[in-house]
Amino acid sequence: MTEQHNSKIITQEDVARRAGVTRSIVSYVINNGPRKVSQETRNRVLSAIKELEYRPNKHAQMLSSADDSVAEKYIGIVLAGNHMFKRSYYGSILAGIHEQAHKRDWHIRFIRVFEDFNNPTLFNELIHPNEITGVILLGLDQVSQTSDNNTLIQAIVDRVERVVCVEWEWPGVPSIQFDLQKAAYQATNHLLTSGHHQAAYIGPEDRRLIGFRQALWENKIQPDFRLMLCASEMQDGYDRCQELLHIGSPNAIVAGTDEVAIGILKCLNEKHIAVPNDVVIASIDNIDLSRFTIPSLTTVDIPRDRIGFHAIDILVSDQHRKGASAFSITVPVQLIIRDSSVPPSNQ
């Protein structure tokens, strides 16, 4: 996005002239009513808003004052999707971000999902130096599979002075994450070295799967790709476990997340398969609920609060840098052994 219009307040009349419509039509598009507007006309208006970098009046007035101090110490958070609001794992990261921001006397202006910013009005309203000084991009690798989304990500990075990626990487932007491969390797190796060699994996298809296969290779176990199933939520874990039991009879299951593991536990319980006597389980995340499942989950602890703390510390640091000097921080992980992987005779 260019800055050629920043010296002049862009009005709805300007947008209407660019789009070849009336001001009322522009208002209907911005406010989603009260009258319906054809998709073709709506697209013309949205294109004009994007080209002119139109912002609602109250934001245009701030812009005209040329006072960047209104955004000082304010940050935004962009999530990959609404599912992050529902997951305990991401809730812990957001709590860490909020706690550390408060300690550093910074403030959170907004938390929005990435899809929202396909609306150019909202983009120009919130992703602007008069609105925020920095932005945290959480897990946007989950939406970076299309060129349009990548273009929008780069537009956010170009517009905001301070940017930090959490749990993913973007060229020229500082990042904070944990080692997915190492976490899965630790969970898998723990089960294999306890004598359970018929191992299955149910979880996200990312570097966790590589860590699972690495542990198989190091323990000289031939991988069976039929026993590697994709899942990211509790219901997925339950459904994939049902499929797994029709394919084979593993005596060890590595779950890519604790939520997936909880779904697996429910499935095995319904099938009267005892954990850990018949099947041992290890997972990743160490969310609070993992201590209270029956049996309690062996899991790899991810220091979610520290991820949030580091994200703020990087963002507000005087050493914050975008570009070639951007750096990445990888937080350590630790295996927590509980009842799901240790039969009673071994405890």
Rank of each mutant, 00 (worst) to 15 (best):
N57Y: 09
A231T: 08
S290L: 02
M1T: 06
A60R: 08
A184I: 03
I294H: 13
N277S: 15
I262Y: 01
I75N: 05
S147N: 15
I30G: 01
S64G: 10
N32M: 15
E233I: 12
A71K: 05
D141A: 11
Q12C: 11
H59L: 06
V333Y: 02
V163M: 09
V21R: 04
A60F: 06
N82D: 09
L268E: 00
H107F: 10
S232T: 14
G172H: 11
I93F: 05
V78E: 14
R306E: 11
E13T: 10
D285F: 01
E161S: 14
Q235P: 01
Q12G: 12
F85M: 09
L227D: 04
I176Q: 04
V173H: 13
V143Q: 04
A155K: 14
K220Y: 13
Y185S: 09
G139D: 02
H5M: 12
T151C: 09
H272G: 00
I210F: 12
V37W: 05
L335F: 03
R35C: 09
T298D: 04
P303G: 14
A215V: 03
V37M: 08
W168K: 03
A282Q: 07
H320G: 02
D288P: 12
P204I: 12
G91M: 02
I221A: 03
L244D: 12
V15I: 10
F114L: 07
P204N: 05
I337H: 07
D158K: 06
Q214G: 11
I30E: 02
S194F: 02
D318A: 11
D313T: 04
D258I: 00
P56S: 00
G195A: 02
H310T: 12
I108N: 10
N124I: 00
I132P: 02
D67Q: 04
L191T: 15
Q142F: 10
N189Y: 10
R112H: 14
H190K: 15
R226M: 00
F85L: 06
D105Y: 11
L229F: 04
I281R: 10
V15P: 03
A184P: 05
I307T: 07
I284F: 01
H5A: 10
E53A: 14
H102F: 08
I9R: 06
H197S: 09
P129V: 03
P120E: 00
D305Y: 10
S249F: 04
G237T: 02
Y89T: 09
A71M: 02
S38Q: 04
S69Y: 02
T299C: 01
A19C: 06
S69R: 14
H107E: 10
M228E: 13
Q222V: 14
A187L: 05
H320I: 01
H59P: 00
R338K: 10
A261C: 05
I108P: 06
E3T: 15
D141W: 05
L94F: 05
D179C: 10
F117P: 06
Q222F: 08
Q319E: 10
R18F: 13
Q154V: 00
A231W: 03
D318R: 08
S65Y: 03
Q61I: 14
S175V: 03
S144C: 08
R44S: 12
N286E: 06
F117D: 11
V254T: 11
D278I: 00
D258C: 00
I284S: 01
A183M: 03
L94H: 06
